[in-house]
Structures are given as C-alpha cells and as structure tokens.
Amino acid sequence: MTDDAAKAAAAKARDGLQAELLKAHAAGDGALLVQLYTRAAALAVAAGEPDRAGFYRTHAWIFALECGHPDAPALRAALAAEGRVD
C-alpha cells in the first residue's frame, strides 16, 4: 500500500469511527463509547499521535467511570503510566 493509500484508509477509518461515536453519544450508550474511544486511542497511537491518543483514552476512562465499566481501572492505569493522571 502506498503512503497515500494508507492515509486514505486511515482517514476512512476515522470518519467511520466518528459516525459511530456520534451515534453512541446520541444513544447515551456508555459501554459503546468506552469501546469506541478506546479504538480511537489505538488508531491515534498507530498514527504516532500520543496527545490525541491521550485525549481519546481520557474520554474512554470518563465514560467507563460513568457507566461502571470494568475497563475503568485499566484505562486509568494506562493514563497514569503516561503521566496523564496522578
């Protein structure tokens, strides 16, 4: 895959994720938001964008806290390991 093709594929993935996030927000589906923001963080990591990844992981953590999701402690631990929460 060429660089251009890879960028186009990544952009498509982000657009698809954006649409899913909007739906999940509209539905108030906390567990799905955790899953989607976690995926967004992974994409950002793959794209070499750690700050963007931290932003998404923060959102995954907050929605995990809100809905009592079992991933909340692990998400917090990941943020703490990156120096993003005390």
């Binding site: 700050d51 963007r52 990844a53 931290g54 932003f55 992981r57 923060t58 959102h59 953590w61 907050i62 806290l65 943020l79 993003r84 929460v85 005390d86």
Partner: peptide, 13 residues
Amino acid sequence: VATPHVGGQGQNS
C-alpha cells in the same frame, strides 16, 4: 475521582 483535561488536553491532573 476525575478531572479530565484539567491540566490541558489529555492531562487529567
């Protein structure tokens, strides 16, 4: 228990 982005984007403390 959480103050998201209180220290800047993705900085939660």
